[in-house]
Design a protein around this nucleic acid. Structure first.
Lengths: 226, 226
DNA sequence: TGCGCAAGACCGACCGGTTGGTCTGTTCTA
DNA sequence: TAGAACAGACCAACCGGTCGGTCTTGCGCA
């Protein structure tokens, strides 16, 4: 006989939620990541949770709402960190550096969310899609703004179109969800450092590279010809 | 009364195929890109083609095989171009440059294929998945090989881990399918030029940057302090 | 040139399994 | 004891795939 978990608890954002609801989210996350939204049935989810259809539909209007909740969790987090970065630092280079650092690190924290996010966003119903799209656009805007400001202040090379540069950064980092493993060879910090290094070397002016030397990887002493 | 198209024709690779089969592929491509593999039924496809279930299953074993054909078309193309790049040029920098150029340009030619590829690869049945995975791994290997060779020859900075560098290039370029429009502000050649510039500036040694100056974007005369 | 015919191309009604979602009833908590 | 939390049998719609049949084409043969 199952003893029901009825204790109300609080999630990361201070919202009141139930243990079962959290468990459904976490369990479905793993299933979605592996088999995709349409490769997992509600039956699969409730069985993996040890609950029932009734339990599921008590907490979620529909399977689609569950997908929305998963999307929202990650995007809300990453957006908050980007706002923080803009507030904390006052030069575009430092802001961009901080954004990249937090953006990469988020893959360590929310990798399953992110995988589902990019794999299944096509299947979000319009009502939910609008909400997510808004936050995603906000995030892109922050990056574009930082790049524009950097070019105006002479820290970033003006010959690089800001929108394309922005998308190249988003692409490089976003793609991480396709290959990053927590138990892989490199830590998330090492990966973040390499990404930052490539991008900053790629888009900073010569003067700015000198100025922000400490953000870049150490250059090993160059041996003459080997 | 419908007049049947029975004329056999040849596709790009010289294979004999029928007009209906090509039409099914093209039509389903657009539908998949918009609504996803599971958002489109076989009924939707055959109605959009003006054919029937019978017509569809005469040309394809299953809906899954159709997905495979779409995947294979793009990946085969991009792989061929990468082999060509390795054969044609003899320094890692030029090889990497050529690979990036052809890799980016492919998005202009096969954007719907690529979108479906990255959106739906999770749903490929094992039998088809193995075939695709092989080609994808080959492509990654080419890029990693070029980077390793570039570091050994002193053209690429040794402090950047080759696997992470490779994935950053793949990510930056692959992400293009999420935002590129043929009627957008930048042409695919301009996008390719910017990507190449950021990456080469990001990973080449100072000596190599001087040597391969012509591959990079013109630096506008730097005004002293504005 | 015309005829007969086999085989490929295509049609579409139908089937069986699946799936998201419902509904009534039961158990737990405040 | 009210109402929230949950159980689980049930259902209607859907969807990939089948199958017997029809139409068209190309070819051997006279």
């Amino acid at each position: 006989m199952k003893i029901y978990d009825k204790i109300l608890t609080k999630n990361g954002k201070g919202e009141i939620t139930s243990e079962l609801k959290e468990k459904i989210i976490e369990t479905s996350l793993k299933l979605f990541e592996k088999h995709g939204f349409h490769g997992v049935t509600v039956k699969d989810i409730v069985e993996a949770c040890g609950t029932s259809k009734g339990g599921f539909y008590h907490h979620f209007q529909s399977k689609d709402e569950l997908l929305y909740v998963i999307h929202d969790k990650f995007i809300s987090y990453v957006l908050t960190r980007a706002f923080e970065a803009k507030d904390t630092y006052d030069t575009p280079t430092l802001q961009l550096y901080a954004i990249i650092q937090s953006f990469v690190k988020v893959f360590d924290l929310y990798k399953p969310h992110i995988s589902v996010f990019y794999q299944e966003s096509l299947y979000l119903k319009p009502q939910f899609d609008h909400l997510i799209k808004k936050k995603r656009d906000q995030y892109k805007k922050i990056i574009f703004d930082v790049i524009n400001e950097g070019q105006q202040k002479g820290e970033f090379r003006k010959e690089l179109a800001p929108e394309i540069t922005g998308m190249s950064i988003l692409g490089m980092v976003n793609w991480t969800h396709k290959w990053y493993r927590r138990d892989g060879e490199k830590t998330i910090e090492e990966i973040a450092a390499i990404f930052s290094d490539i991008i900053l070397n790629g888009i900073l002016t010569d003067a700015a590279i000198d100025q922000y030397q400490q953000l870049l990887l150490e250059k090993p002493a160059m041996k003459p010809n080997f």
